[in-house]
Design a protein around this nucleic acid. Sequence first.
DNA 1: GTCATGCTTCGGTGAGCGCCGAACTGTTCC
DNA 2: GGAACAGTTCGGCGCTCACCGAAGCATGAC
Lengths: 226, 226
Amino acid sequence: MTEPNRIAATAALLGDPARANMLAALMDGRALTAKELAYAGHITPQTASEHLGKLTEGGLLAVKKQGRHRYYRLASLLVGQMLEGVMAFAEPEPARATTWRGGEALRTARTCYDHLAGRLGVALADALTARGHVALGTDGGEVTEAGTQFLDAFGAALAPGRRVFCRPCLDWSERRPHLAGRVGAALACRCFELGWIARQRDTRAVAITTAGQEGFRAQFGIVLGG
Amino acid sequence: MTEPNRIAATAALLGDPARANMLAALMDGRALTAKELAYAGHITPQTASEHLGKLTEGGLLAVKKQGRHRYYRLASLLVGQMLEGVMAFAEPEPARATTWRGGEALRTARTCYDHLAGRLGVALADALTARGHVALGTDGGEVTEAGTQFLDAFGAALAPGRRVFCRPCLDWSERRPHLAGRVGAALACRCFELGWIARQRDTRAVAITTAGQEGFRAQFGIVLGG
DNA sequence: GTCATGCTTCGGTGAGCGCCGAACTGTTCC
DNA sequence: GGAACAGTTCGGCGCTCACCGAAGCATGAC
């Protein structure tokens, strides 16, 4: 009885355009200030403050004071996965190849909560699959023995010993699965470490550096013409 | 720009208690009439009609006319997965062992969209894991060679040849993963076929028949004290 | 034909909430 | 100290939307 009401209450929090915009802006896992989120939601700081209060109250966001700023981020993995679920449904069917702000950059490479998406993310998943490093299906995926060794050598080591699974995440611009879960996160993390990719201000798009162009080509055979 | 608005619009559809109740009632994959859904949402048929119209319009529900009834069901797997995502977040933390309508029956065994959940679902996942038939992790899972053979012999055969993955689905009453995805669906389907479990009216709870008591014990070593 | 039933449409009411301007607290910097 | 800035709280406006009663279509039973 009390159960669906909690569902409704949670969903209602996502059901406001301003809040949805703010949450989408946080999907790359960064922590943003209230002002930045107000900008992302296209609303004034006063209004944003109310929304952020509700989202925090509802357990969707965690907040950390730092000087005169307040940094908001998604409160847990579950929040990111919930948003993924809604996005997977809500996104327009085939890649509507038009007009977002910086759409082209977003489609080339972007972060999706804690892992890589866009053409780069899909290409990485394809490359690893083609080489037998991971096996992916619609219901899940697994890193092979060879894949574990490869990731190890690449510097994106995972806890050894136990079997390593990975979760596919449906990519809304390519409509193809890419690597999420611990594996995707470790891979993305290592790419940042190597300086192959770099975050950009005010967007989830990531830039592929010249080192990255070279690295992705050498290690994965990936060349993104775009 | 248009993107998060779609997310918000979709989430807003889930964000009404009456609609959330109706969707929750459809989570077991059955098709229900408008009247039954009005009852599930605790609203009058007029109001339910509006809600059902919006949900259908939004692509969440599919409807089929049959005589003077209209049967509504979830429109796609994506809808079920989206709801799962929201539920996984929104459910109260530990098993709040109290007071739902038929709570005890629901906790023992119920359907979760197209597969089994509750103690039975978790016990099945545990049994299959313990025997090395499936391997489960937080990011996914896989059916082993032996598991494929076992499922085959059990009558819950899956398309052969390709690797079979399965998706864990976090159980909100037990807080333990159980089997979802194709594997979970095939398993549940076979249990219904064998007459081990039976659907009940007006609830997602399923009854374990006496044949089921015997079968689950013999095949899986599962005894649910009730 | 008449009646019952399932469902939808219409009209009007009321509550909730998203929004912003203005004012207030707290931090940083000079 | 004072000025600048980040963020919140308050008050009031306006819109949206969930709700139900009543009426209107269908379909099926007799």
